[in-house]
Simulated scan of single mutants.
Amino acid sequence: MIEDLNLYYGHLFEKELLEEINQVGTIKEVPKGMMMMEVGQYIKSMPLLINGAVKIMREDEDGFELLLYYLERGDTCSMTLNCCLGDKKSEIRAVAEKDTKLIMVPVKKMEEWVAKYRTWRSFVFESYHIRMKEMLETIDNIAFKKMDERLLQYLRHKKELTDTNEIKATHQEIALDLHTSRVVVSRLLKALEKQGNIVLHRNSIEIINVD
């Protein structure tokens, strides 16, 4: 574990903190598609991502999901931090976007490290800042952008996230992420295919040009 910590978090944390994480943390490997956190669940530990990606979603009163942001290597989740520090139930759902490896740190260490390590405080505050910007971007997209623009941005982000031109997702899954209907997504994807931007396959989308 210490090798992964030094490689991906060594530039962020001092040696003493890295050694503490190595002592109390546990490695967790999660396959693609696995639910990692559910709404209403108490959080016992906080994740530090080593590799992979995690999709963070919010659920409305009617049970519909909205994609908030993705976590990638070197990240942690500010929503999780908030629940850890406040001993609250989770308000988000987390699903592995691809095979993911994490270091899980016990909740009891959170407040101790905030007081003890300057680099941990900076990491926590910066995580809040980054996630807040991403959530504001999501709100702006919903409020001000047309659905075709949101779909193109979504496809670009998925391409960058997975580092491949093949996006394995059904129209229904995309609709859920974008908080819209499958019919709307299918119509817009067909339009993009006619324009030569994508090629539609069964349960996957081949990216030609979405820049």
Rank of each mutant, 00 (worst) to 15 (best):
K159G: 01
R118I: 14
K116N: 11
T170M: 06
K101C: 02
L102V: 10
L102S: 05
I130R: 14
T119A: 14
M104P: 01
V114S: 03
M147H: 05
A191I: 08
M104T: 06
R156G: 07
H179R: 06
Y128C: 09
S186H: 04
L136A: 09
L152V: 11
A175T: 05
S181L: 03
K145D: 13
T162H: 14
S181W: 02
K158G: 02
I142D: 00
E193D: 05
R118S: 12
T162M: 13
E134M: 14
Y128N: 05
K168A: 03
K109H: 06
R182H: 01
R121P: 02
L192C: 02
A115R: 15
Y154L: 08
V107Y: 08
L155S: 07
K116M: 13
K108V: 10
E173P: 00
L155G: 04
E166D: 05
V105M: 04
K101N: 02
I139K: 14
L178Y: 03
E126S: 12
K146T: 02
K146W: 01
Y154M: 10
V185F: 02
K108A: 06
T100E: 06
L192V: 01
R182P: 01
K168V: 12
P106G: 03
R121G: 06
F123G: 08
V114G: 01
H129L: 15
E134R: 13
D148N: 06
L188Q: 03
A175P: 02
I174A: 04
F123T: 07
S122C: 13
D148R: 03
H171I: 00
D140L: 11
R121M: 10
H129S: 15
